[in-house]
């Protein structure tokens, strides 16, 4: 009984949070070229949105769900996300091991280079890659990579590379930091004394110990990739989920649809988080799971 009550309270709080957050701009209503603060307008908007959200069986409820090409575009976006996540994950582990196998002096230099990439804004990377592709096209006359999503084209290569560029360095930096710390542990010293090779230590023993940390970090990576996908789909005019989203914000202005879109966008993050929590729970045997 108590838990049901708690669940209801949480649900109410979450919905009111959504209503509050996304109606916030209506505090400032533009009237006669002046901005007026009004609580009344805000309340009206909240009330209206709440009512549209609640009329579950109304004729117009979520009608756009059938009109917009949701399934197709969502699939495209999620393919990009999954591909780049896998790419980032395996490439980062591989590179981290390679970096840690190099001699100390080279290693420090490589670390400096990797740390530098943390500060590079994602827009710079996107523009540089775009510039490179166009430059190649102009020089060779060959259209090697499809860049824009016009005429229903669905390029995969360039979006995946652009989207995974910075998250790769982010994960790499994290892995190197954690693995270097782990290298000072007693069990690593012991393994080395036993004469086990460094590759085996890194890949089997250290990796097993940093795995929970890595799972927690994956959430950040998915977060960054999602934000980047949103940017890229807008900039290159790709036929991804962003377009549906954009249309919803600017043309339809349908509150239930907005929530559905947001929830759909949040699914990968929730999935990664849940998997992480479950696995850590299994590994540690404690820590309560909570959304």
């Amino acid at each position: 009984m108590n838990s049901i009550l708690q669940f209801i309270i949480r649900l109410v709080v979450i919905i009111s949070g959504f209503l509050f957050t996304f109606n916030l701009p209506h505090f400032f209503c533009i009237e006669n070229n002046k901005i007026r603060l009004s609580f009344q307008v805000f309340l009206n908007w909240v009330k209206e949105d709440f009512l549209t959200l609640m009329q579950l069986k109304g004729p117009n409820y979520l009608e756009y769900l059938n009109v917009l090409p949701i399934a197709e575009s969502y699939e495209y976006t999620m393919t990009i996300l999954a591909t780049s996540l896998l790419l980032v994950f395996f490439l980062a582990i591989l590179t981290a091991v390679c970096v840690l196998l190099t001699p100390r002096r080279v290693q420090n230099r490589l670390k400096n280079v990797i740390n530098f990439f943390e500060a590079v804004p994602d827009l710079l990377v996107i523009f540089l890659l775009q510039f490179l592709v166009i430059f190649l096209f102009k020089k060779t006359g060959l259209k090697i990579f499809q860049l824009y999503g016009i005429f229903g084209a669905k390029p995969y290569f360039i979006p995946v590379v652009t989207v995974s560029f910075l998250p790769f360095f982010l994960l790499l930096q994290f892995l190197i930091k954690v693995m270097t710390e782990e290298q000072n542990q007693h069990y690593v010293v012991y393994l080395r004394a036993k004469g086990i090779g460094m590759v085996r230590i890194l890949l089997v023993h250290i990796f097993r110990n940093i795995f929970p940390l890595l799972l927690l970090q994956l959430r950040v990576i998915v977060w960054v990739i999602l934000a980047n996908i949103y940017l890229i789909e807008y900039m290159f005019n790709l036929n991804g989920f962003t377009k549906v989203f954009q249309k919803n914000i600017f043309l339809l202005k349908d509150f239930p649809m907005l929530i559905v879109c947001l929830v759909m966008l949040a699914i990968p993050l929730v999935a990664v988080e849940t998997v992480g929590l479950l696995l850590t729970k299994k590994l540690n045997g404690k820590e309560s799971a909570r959304l």
Partner: peptide
């Protein structure tokens, strides 16, 4: 309760929220 109220900020990149919120003002 605070965490639940701002649940959107935990699962949606802030760029998206910013785009939604800015649209009525400078769109």
């Amino acid at each position: 309760l605070f965490k639940d109220f701002f649940l959107a900020f935990r699962y949606i990149p802030s760029l998206l929220i910013a785009v939604i919120l800015m649209a009525p003002i400078v769109g």
